[in-house]
């Protein structure tokens, strides 16, 4: 039995004839590159001063760090259909979604560095990014980001807008009560929610097949009478297509949908995770969705060397600007540690 993605033996769907135009495909690629560039920079900064050895509480970026490398197709494909008036609730692994949804990189990065200029003035940290400007939030508790998304959708519905809430969680969370309560309630009240499950095969060290009774969490949508769709092979354009259907359904007032995306946890559950439990570890890099999509876009004539270089340089510039901003920002005053409990 294998619980992870079979190695791709056939070309990814992106290499087949695409329904998308070149600017859309380029934009998806740009988002994926920006997300990855960001995570690579955080990885660099995170490990820069953890020594000697590895002390998780040490350094400019202390604490647990859950990076999203490999899961960029989810963020790019889903958030392409949103504006910053739409809400997104994410998980303990939120960076790619925050970036794709348009969060200000400086404020986000300053929060991850625990600075006073951060989104939460250094009170939240990387698992607790709250951004009123983009209606983005995340929760470090498995599946518990779903219920607040219902409320945002409820408020959008009451205001008679066509705004939607996208609730993202991992495949391990689909076994939590909050997941099922939320699907039922959203379906019964026809709330404008898009439920997204990022199936990266692993709930920390437990493979999905060992924990989940059904082969696809999308099947669970049927229990609540809503559409459920599973996207295979971490295919950004298939994510884009599925999300288009789900977002349109929510905007039109027809109610929620569930999308599960078979994605990839390219790195560990958190930084410092040696992943000894992961038998396919050696082949994981070969499934990286970004080189694969780049190749597809080059073959289709959408991108060339110059374009790729420009995209990578632009991403690096934005990310390094944000890192520099964070590093130069003031730390919170310890005397203010008890502030902001109440409004």
């Amino acid at each position: 039995m294998t619980m992870h993605a079979e190695p791709s033996t056939s070309p990814a769907a992106e290499t087949a004839a695409s329904a998308l135009d070149a600017p859309t495909r380029t934009a998806l690629f740009e988002t994926m590159v920006l997300c990855r560039t960001y995570e690579e920079a955080i990885l660099r900064e995170y490990h820069a001063d953890k020594g000697p050895g590895f002390d998780i509480g040490k350094g400019l970026v202390p604490g647990e760090m859950h990076l999203s490398a490999g899961q960029e197709p989810v963020a790019a494909g889903v958030c392409a259909h949103l504006t910053t008036d739409d809400a997104v609730t994410a998980t303990h692994r939120p960076h790619h979604l925050a970036i794709a949804h348009g969060m200000d990189l400086r404020a986000m990065t300053a929060e991850i560095f625990g600075r006073e200029t951060g989104l939460g003035r250094g009170r939240g940290g990387h698992m607790h990014l709250f951004d009123p400007a983009t209606h983005f939030s995340c929760s470090g508790i498995i599946a518990e980001g779903y219920p607040p998304a219902l409320g945002q959708a409820f408020a959008f519905q009451r205001k008679q807008t066509d705004r939607v809430a996208v609730a993202v969680t991992g495949e391990g969370a689909a076994n939590q009560g909050a997941f099922h309560e939320s699907l039922n309630l959203a379906a019964r009240w026809s709330l404008p929610v898009v439920f997204v499950v990022e199936d990266n095969d692993w709930a920390i060290s437990v493979p999905r097949d060992a924990a989940t009774a059904v082969p696809s969490n999308a099947d669970r949508a049927a229990a609540y009478g809503i559409p459920g769709e599973r996207v295979e092979d971490n295919d950004v354009e298939a994510v884009y297509a599925a999300a288009a259907r789900a977002v349109e359904r929510a905007r039109s007032g027809a109610g929620p949908s569930l999308i599960e995306i078979h994605t990839l946890r390219l790195w560990g559950h958190f930084e410092g995770d040696a992943q000894g439990y992961r038998p396919e570890l050696a082949e994981v890099p070969s499934h990286d969705p970004i080189p694969r999509y780049e190749k597809a876009l080059r073959e289709a004539g959408v991108l060339d060397d110059d374009a790729v270089q420009r995209i990578r340089a632009a991403a690096a510039e934005r990310v390094e600007d944000a890192i520099a901003y964070a590093k130069s920002s003031p730390l919170p005053d310890p005397a203010s540690a008890t502030s902001y409990v109440f409004a």
Partner: peptide, 20 residues
């Protein structure tokens, strides 16, 4: 509401965040 306290209390939170 349904007997789903996690869902409807969370719904209250999200609605409050959005100004209700």
């Amino acid at each position: 509401t349904p007997i789903s306290e996690t869902a409807f209390i969370g719904l209250g939170i999200g609605a409050a965040v959005e100004g209700m």
